[in-house]
Amino acid sequence: MDAMLHISTLHYLVLGAALFLLGVIGVLTRRNVVIVLMSIELILNAVNLNLVALSRYWQGVYGPNALHGQVFAIFVITDAAAEAAVGLGILIAFFRNKETINVDEVNLLKW
């Protein structure tokens, strides 16, 4: 019961793992490219949650200015923005050529 009532770093890590798994399931099973990209955003968010939770943990060890995890989370958000822009650009180019947004039909390089 005490583990339920006291929120520790591990609680945040488990939540991050659950979100990560949802993103992995989305990437592996969906056919719609837009939803696959959204699942990738879910994965990046799970990683960000872990980074900020562990940054909180290190603040307890090294004092309030140990914010490296938060800085790294900001870099991850920057990467997510770049990835979304380029990914959606590729998606538009693909849709123009094939008139579909199913990943199954991206099979030009397949044997």
Binding site: L15, A18, L19, L22, G23, I25, G26, T29, R30, I35, M38, S39, L42
Partner: peptide, 9 residues
């Protein structure tokens, strides 16, 4: 968050 994530996929 988890319900939202399940709805997303």
């Amino acid at each position: 968050m988890l319900i939202g994530g399940i709805l997303v996929i």
